[in-house]
Amino acid sequence: MEKACSLMFQSTLTHSGKSLFTAAFCRIYSKMGYNVAPFKAQNLSLNSFVTANGREIAVAQAFQAMACNIEPAEMMNPILLKPKGGEKVQIILFGKPYQDMSFPDYRKYFAIKEGFPRIREALKDLLNRYDMVIIEGAGAPSEINLMKSDISNMRVAQIFDSPVLMIGDIDPGGVFAGLIGTLELLRYPEKKLIKGFIINKFRGDQKILEPGIKYLEKRTKKRVLGVVPYIEDLVLPAEDSITLNITRFNPQKRNTKKTNSNLDDVRKVWLQNLDKFCNIVGETIDFDYVDQLLGV
């Protein structure tokens, strides 16, 4: 099989901006005329979206598909996990409820044996139908206690050797420790796939950061593609219950019935906001290098 044109985003923490970067890259490359699709192997979220053919996927992937100007489809999020309280979780497979399981059982019996082949299948399907797939990881890839059953990060990248960009959220501090620690906890073939770092949510004087970036690049021999500033008041769909920004949409409100025109309106606001973010990303990220990674 010829080398797939794909790119993956992972992060050292959740809520570092993976979904947003995936959406932005989807938008940027689709505007350049490529046929782009988003992908996230497994999403843990209570906010779901129903596709045209009645399949349930995470809102984040639906939003990313809208950013690509394509219809959201179940292949973009083959596994959706909906926590049901306690340790129970509902597994939605290809947009259809499949089974309820406890988390330990899911990790033990389902993830590798049943889940991962479906993920591979879905990704392969997308790569056949689109020019380019932008993949989003889940959580942090460095959870050494769960690594054996992690099917949404490095395992996905390794299917078609997708280059990985690691996002570090600098807002809480310790970003260099987080990036280096994450890299060092990965196994060798995984480490090789990480092609660069992005520092997100930075406030203040970028000059102060420079010695740190130099050290990071020297130590890891990987590039820092850019430092993206903190942007307040981006109205985007909240992915799960730990919503950090007060001004985001209240998921409860969105789940209530809404007329179609209303929904369109919300989408418009999202996309406007996304375009704002795309402009900033375009200015701060080294896209020549990204093009090289994608081979376009």
Binding site: L13, A177, I180
Partner: peptide
């Protein structure tokens, strides 16, 4: 280290490495 947003071992290990 705060585990709320994950990545706790990476942050612990990375901090010690630095």
């Amino acid at each position: 280290a705060d585990i709320e947003r994950g990545g706790v071992f990476a942050y612990l290990y990375g901090t010690l490495l630095l």
